[in-house]
Design a protein around this nucleic acid. Structure first.
Lengths: 209, 209
DNA sequence: GCGGAAATATTGACCGAGTATAATATCCTG
DNA sequence: CAGGATATTATACTCGGTCAATATTTCCGC
């Protein structure tokens, strides 16, 4: 594959994505049609589908892969003897200290998430991505064919992150500060992760005494 | 409202639902169009939408309300001093003894769920129903405006039921017996519910010492 | 550079779910 | 049976998404 071709593809993809994002924020996700996006990006509708399989992916593309990526990395690099869930708690603590964008809520992030939730189809796609992330995490926790407990733990972790995010956004909606929102976020994360960690540990004791 | 009118409505609704279910199982959910269903039920497409807002509701209608209904009832009727989650564990134990259909897996149930999961749109709708059930449960746990922890607990309960069901279905897919499937189901239920119960209890101690 | 193979974009027709609206049939009440 | 309410229907439309055929571009060996 030639270099020039690839850069052009990246360019086209980026242009479509930019144009779409702009239109979406200006007029709402559901009010913008794919034909409009295609026209505004000077491509055909088919080309849009070429780069983004679904309309929703124009906004959520790679939104949730990110989460999984961080988790995977942390789990793989954890010190000997450390349980994966415990390591995820450590990771969240680090991200908090660094005010890392993935785990830091400002007004901009709140706007983004409120925008997503305002559209049923975007929210539906988000749920789907969450499920995919959970399955990926389960595999990370327990290998290629995770058992029920690993799936449950992974699902709970993803659910905790999601719920914590939702609550953080709610803080903004009630006029709270970014500081307060982040406090709420990490409080919930910690409670959820701790519960999952305890569940996994209980099982390990129960299975092999 | 007249009696005859209402019975006729029930009749029509039932006929549409029956006809649709039959067609779905015969040829797959996505391969059957609403026009076909309408024709087979001797009714117009609009009438179908009159009774079922979405195509998916022809299969999942009230599938998940049920869950919430049971939980609500149990929580409201629980003895003084009993925590809601603890009561849900008691409820599941009872349902298990009774081999109650809601908590009992046979081959027929497994077929149904495999059918649902075979269609992306059905699965998406199921996720949506799960979220609604979780929100309803959160309200049951903590009143009309539940806090983050109540939402997290409710979400975890619903997730546990879902994951346990999925694992039970997997047992069937691997050729396991109904007995084994039910054992897997209740084992996961218990682990999940116990973890949530511990989480809620920890918080109660942490908040007001 | 140039010609042919392969990837990619485009076109235009198509499908099916879901909506809007206005007209018509059916039932209930008085 | 009249008249109002409510169900049902026909029709036409929107939009996301797919398909198949065609055109265009890009790459690579010559």
């Amino acid at each position: 594959m030639g270099e020039r071709r690839e850069s052009k593809k990246r360019e086209t993809r980026q242009r479509i994505s930019d144009v779409a994002t702009e239109l979406f924020f200006a007029r709402g996700f559901d009010a913008v049609t794919l034909d409009e996006i295609a026209a505004a990006a000077s491509v055909s509708k088919m080309t849009v589908f070429n780069y983004f399989a679904r309309k929703e992916d124009l906004m959520l593309d790679r939104q949730d892969d990110l989460k999984l990526l961080f988790f995977r990395e942390a789990i793989r690099a954890r010190p000997q003897g450390q349980s994966p869930i415990a390591e995820l708690r450590v990771l969240m603590g680090k991200l908090r200290e660094q005010k890392h964008p993935f785990a830091h809520f400002d007004r901009h992030a709140a706007d983004f998430w409120r925008f997503v939730v305002a559209s049923p189809s975007l929210e539906a796609r988000l749920r789907e991505l969450n499920d995919e992330a959970a399955e990926g995490l389960a595999i990370e926790l327990a290998g290629p064919t995770p058992d029920g407990l690993a799936r449950l733990a992974a699902g709970m972790i993803v659910l905790t992150v999601r719920t914590a995010r939702e609550e953080a956004v709610r803080v903004f909606e009630r006029g709270g500060s970014a500081k307060k929102a982040n406090a709420v976020f990490f409080a919930l994360i910690d409670q959820g992760f701790a519960a999952v960690q305890a569940m996994a540990a209980t099982d390990a004791r129960g299975q092999s005494p």
